[in-house]
């Protein structure tokens, strides 16, 4: 769920301002010529990189490296550079129930429908709230959007009982449904912000050509909304991938457990899993990292367009 926040008044400046920007960039050099400012920036950057860097180093040190000496000793005769932690983590280090390969498969199976379905549903609703004249649509929209403030904790237990009653325990349906339902208030709100900005003249023109709402939605709206969809898709993808609470509640069975509770489980059996833990964490974060680094632009736009899940 997420914080309910109106869109922020932030726009990337473009075009004609470039010249002035350049001028300001030059000015900035005077500002940053202060050695203290640079020093502080560098210190923050280093502090923020150390934990992940240490994890990376530890994931590449041979046993018993990670649990016998600090990572800043790097590689030595007794803890040489090796990729074997990764293969051990992938197969669970002899414990099939810990195999991260299996967890990762479950994460993939969970994350694809849990990203596509809420976006598709929210697009329809956002269109209806913005473009289909209907008495009471504003009240309904405010209701959906206000639900963002409900912490998901409030919804978990009744849903769990509901799913148990329907005989869905042990399958993927509960976690697909839950992620979908929890994502809808924010998704509808964000996409509504984009969809209402589309010029009415385009809709009018399509209507004169004889298109109904279904035609307008698929032929006029969807192509224009691709950037907005990309922004929210990355958002939702990362959120589902990194989620722990919903997974622990609805997908903690052996068949469906995804990677986050999977590596979380390793931390509680620290002694036996000590050597594969850093590699396991690296396996869990590599995909979100690639997604984030390659699609950063869309992700940041999604952040700025409204709010953030947490």
């Amino acid at each position: 769920m997420s914080a309910a926040i109106a869109p922020m008044p932030i726009e990337e400046q473009v075009g004609g301002r470039r010249l002035r920007r350049q001028q300001r960039a030059n000015d900035a050099k005077t500002r940053l010529s202060s050695p203290w400012a640079s020093l502080i920036a560098v210190v923050i950057a280093i502090l923020w990189t150390i934990p992940t860097f240490g994890l990376l180093v530890n994931s590449l040190r041979g046993a018993p490296g990670p649990s016998s000496s600090g990572w800043w000793h790097f590689f030595s005769a007794e803890s040489p550079f090796t990729f074997s932690n990764y293969s051990a983590a992938w197969t669970g280090n002899g414990v099939p129930a810990n195999a991260l390969g299996g967890f990762l498969l479950n994460t993939f199976v969970i994350v694809i429908p849990a990203t596509v379905i809420p976006i598709a549903l929210a697009l329809g609703a956002a269109y209806a709230f913005a473009w289909i004249p209907f008495r009471g649509r504003n009240v309904l929209f405010v209701m959906v959007f206000a639900l963002q403030i409900v912490p998901i904790q409030v919804a978990l237990i009744p849903l769990l009982k509901l799913y148990n009653g329907w005989g869905l325990t042990g399958s993927f349906w509960p976690i697909w449904l839950s992620h979908t339902m929890f994502a809808l208030p924010l998704a509808t709100f964000l996409l509504h912000n984009f969809i209402k900005e589309i010029p009415g003249s385009l809709v009018e023109a399509a209507r004169i050509d004889g298109a109904g709402h279904v035609g307008i939605f698929f032929r006029v709206m969807l192509p224009l909304l691709v950037p907005a969809i990309a922004s929210f898709a990355i958002f939702q993808f990362l959120w589902v991938w990194n989620d722990l609470l919903v997974a622990l509640t609805f997908a903690s069975g052996a068949n469906t457990k995804p990677i986050t509770p999977g590596i979380q489980g390793l931390t509680t059996q620290f002694a036996s899993a000590a050597d594969i833990l850093p590699a396991g964490a690296m396996i869990a974060l590599i995909v979100p990292l690639i997604v984030f680094l390659s699609l950063q632009r869309f992700f940041v736009r999604g952040l700025l367009a409204g709010s953030v899940k947490g």
């Binding site: 934990p51 994890l55 990362l238 990194n242 509770p261 590596i263 931390t267 974060l285 680094l293």
Partner: peptide
């Protein structure tokens, strides 16, 4: 971008 669990392990 990474999960809080991975952050906790780091």
């Amino acid at each position: 971008a990474i999960s809080m669990v991975a952050a906790g392990i780091a």
